[in-house]
């Protein structure tokens, strides 16, 4: 089973973002790295000039590279950015149906933001050129197994680590929480490397905000399901970057993928990292996504 490093979803300062990928290129044991802005087009000018160099460096280090595209394009310039990503010549990850339209049948990766819940949807996307699909983090293990049994030539990926992306909006909640209009946001999202924590009014940690995106507060960790996912024929585990040591996270999941370490050891190793929330696998168990590893039901 392979490991895919998903795109950095958060607005990390450009230098930190470049350093992160330099270290991934040199040290991380992952097969595939997906690079590119998924959440907010306003962040793109800061990194556009550096992205080709990052992709080249990762490719030289032997990683398969994929260029990620926006999950919620609305403006013409955002669609243009997607066109440019396609024209850059790297394999592309589509995160919106508009991108699938623009790809016009060319082979591509589908990210976790398109709704592929069943074999008919998977077949429709395969016919449109999808060769690899990262499934929605919402799917329970039984559904993943069902899809894997009917996936044909499409490689399936499962969201295995990181805060799960839950929703997208035309509205920017980072700006709203800071009392700023979206068009004059001052890039306040840059202050929260793992997203801005959102708690209930009775003090329960609940969600996290990343610009126009909402994620879970907990950190998805498909630890106990790796054996079942491997047996089902899932091709890769997707690790979504958080600010903790992702080289260490990749090491843990490589150990699990190769059945060299058990779930307890993996859990202990991950729990030792400075994570933004508790480890959870509720969705995979068919429970509310917020459920932690230790929760019974």
């Amino acid at each position: 089973m392979q490991l895919t490093l998903g795109p950095v979803l958060f607005n990390w300062p450009t230098e930190a973002w470049q350093d992160f990928y330099a270290r991934i290129a040199d040290e991380a044991d992952v097969d595939r790295v997906i690079v590119g802005e998924v959440v907010c087009s306003k962040r793109m000018p800061f990194r556009d000039h550096a992205i080709a160099a990052v992709l080249e460096r990762l490719a030289r280090a032997g990683k398969e590279v994929v260029y990620a595209t926006l999950a919620l394009p609305t403006l013409p310039r955002e669609t243009r950015a997607i066109r440019e990503a396609i024209e850059a010549g790297y394999p592309v990850e589509a995160n919106d149906i508009a991108t699938v339209h623009l790809l016009a049948g060319a082979p591509h990766v589908v990210g976790p933001y398109l709704n592929i819940y069943n074999e008919a949807a998977l077949a429709a996307h395969a016919a449109l050129g999808a060769t690899r699909v990262c499934l929605s983090p919402e799917l329970p293990l039984a559904a993943i197994e069902g899809l894997a049994a009917r996936a044909g030539a499409v490689a399936l990926e499962v969201f295995a680590f990181g805060r799960a992306p839950l929703a997208l909006s035309a509205r920017c909640y980072h700006a709203r929480a800071h009392g700023l209009p979206k068009d004059a946001c001052q890039f306040v999202c840059e202050r929260d490397a793992d997203g801005m924590d959102v708690a209930t009014v009775t003090g329960q940690p609940f969600l996290a905000v990343n610009g126009i995106q909402t994620l879970g507060h907990g950190v998805t960790a498909a630890i106990r399901q790796v054996d079942a996912l491997r047996a089902a024929g899932v091709d890769a585990l997707r690790l979504s970057p958080q600010s903790c040591d992702m080289v260490a996270v990749a090491r843990v999941f490589r150990g699990l993928a190769e059945a060299r370490i058990d779930a307890a050891a993996a859990e202990a190793a991950l729990a030792a990292l400075p994570l933004p929330g508790p480890l959870g696998d509720g969705y995979l168990r068919g429970l509310p996504g917020a459920r932690r590893l230790q929760d019974a039901e």
Binding site: Y113, N115, A164, L166, A167, F206, G282
Partner: peptide, 10 residues
């Protein structure tokens, strides 16, 4: 494209 409800309730 919203999973908020299932995050809290399944």
């Amino acid at each position: 494209r919203c999973l908020l409800s299932s995050y809290a309730t399944g």
